[in-house]
Amino acid sequence: MFELLGVPPQALFGQLLLGLINGAFYAMLSLGLAVIFGMLNVINFAHGAQYMMGAFTAWMLLNFLGVNYWAALILAPLLVGLFGILLERLFLRHLYHLDHLYGLLLTFGLALIIEGVFRKFYGSSGQPYSIPEELTGGHNLGFMFLPNYRAWVVAFSLVVCLAVWYLIERTKLGSYLRAATENPTLVQAFGINVPRMVMLTYGFGVGLAALAGVMAAPIYQVSPLMGANLIIVVFAVVVIGGMGSILGSIVTGFGLGVVEGFTKVFYPEASNTVIFVIMAIVLVLRPAGLFGRAQ
């Protein structure tokens, strides 16, 4: 067998794939955070809990109602998105004129409550969710074995990210979003119902987290704390990419997943911390983030 940089290709490409999978989730979650932050000025700490709710909703749909993965991919984001809209109406709406800190504290509290409720009913152990029949198995590519479901996750998340980017940067609706992010007062004075747009944007961002949750269900187990662990890394990704940048969160999400994967191959001891080390360096050299505009 030939080796690359002293590492067997199976291991190298295996970790690269693992990195891409993680990166896919980083990208989808940080994208939702970026959209929400741009529009609401709120750092949505409940994002991890909402991701978990997406996975649990898919699990419940399957086990209680017999609704399969493909339908859950649409239904779970809608249901969790509606829950997000409810949170926006009841709580977040009252905080927009205050400092970021208040939104962060509120959503942090909401995350603890939501995760607490799920733990009460499901404990902290995971519930299995099987890979949809159509995507079981895999292909031997010669240099590595590629499981179908993982290939699907990477490809589909990339499509979702690019579609969101297109929606925001290239459509009329997106121009309203960008304009309202810059100057909501003026956009409203042109006759656009900005409060409703803000509400729907939050629902959309939350729905995106839930979609990532559904996609994660067959890979990781469905458990109440699955989002709590992930969201810390995602916040580091957001800091590195630059808060509020759409393209930045996509590129940084996938990129850092890959960096993490390679670190596992070449220096496994650092694989859990490499993202935080990069975050520290970026904060010192470029506090607004790689893609962020300095204020």
């Binding site: 009329k172 121009s175 309203y176 960008r178 304009a179 992010t181 810059e182 100057n183 003026l186 956009v187 042109f190 006759g191 656009i192």
Partner: peptide, 19 residues
């Protein structure tokens, strides 16, 4: 003036909805 920096000229022009 309130020109939106993240929108191009045409997007700025077409932004205000017809009332």
């Amino acid at each position: 003036r309130g020109i939106f920096a993240s929108l191009n000229v045409e997007e700025n022009l077409l932004l205000p909805p017809v009332v």
